[in-house]
Design a protein around this nucleic acid. Structure first.
Lengths: 109, 109
DNA sequence: ACTCTTTATTGTAATATTGCAATCAATAAA
DNA sequence: TTTATTGATTGCAATATTACAATAAAGAGT
């Protein structure tokens, strides 16, 4: 149906999926990498840096913002976007603990 | 357009996004968690464990298999699915190095 | 007030994803 | 051979995502 049955999964599973999902597009990966690389971070730079139209970048930024991963402060006509340190750490912790699962039985398959 | 412009991004960005994307659904998170928990791992178990129809589970398994994260060996009428140790380690390494980015300038926003 | 710059929003088209009923393929058991 | 059993595949409907042109909104500079 194109809609996820979130209600049958645990809070943690849904949270992990949400974090992973927002990282599941190369444009958002590129945006985050750029924000990490720069000290000053303006959306206009991103449109120049990444080869996507301004509305598309704006939409990807919105998705990152909705998860709290980035925050934007208005500076005159432009907006300064940065990675939210706390939210990033939270995501990192969650994904890391999932990724740290080990394959129990290497003889199985 | 519902299609990602993968050609304008680096190999690494596309790879990271692909890995993250496949983790971006709670059913696939649940499947992987179950495979980590169990020694014997059959698709039928998953249908019982997770509240989704058999074709849906089969489809999620297919996506995980396509990325090489899991592998399935036929055992009689059933299929034994397991996490691929090497592929999992590769993904873990890739995502970890991305997640390890640090916020440079906490004074920015 | 007018104009420019910058970002957000709206509307729309194309494609992708999610989910399941129905069905198929293959092996096992009788 | 017939009859389960198990999992994959097909076909379809509903929804989501991606992308961008057009436009709006808001402040800066003239």
């Amino acid at each position: 149906m194109g809609i996820s049955k979130t209600e049958i999964f645990t809070e943690e599973q849904n949270m992990l999926a949400k974090f992973a999902k927002v990282l599941g597009h190369p444009a958002r990966i590129a945006i985050l990498e750029y924000l990490f690389k720069r000290e000053t971070c303006v959306c206009g730079d991103l449109v120049g840096e990444i080869g996507l139209a301004q509305p598309t970048i704006s939409q990807h930024l919105k998705e990152l913002k909705q998860l709290g991963l980035i925050k934007g402060t208005i500076e005159g006509t432009s907006v300064c976007y940065c990675v939210d340190k706390v939210a990033w750490a939270t995501m990192k912790r969650a994904l890391n603990s999932f990724l740290n699962h080990d394959v129990q039985n290497p003889e199985c398959c």
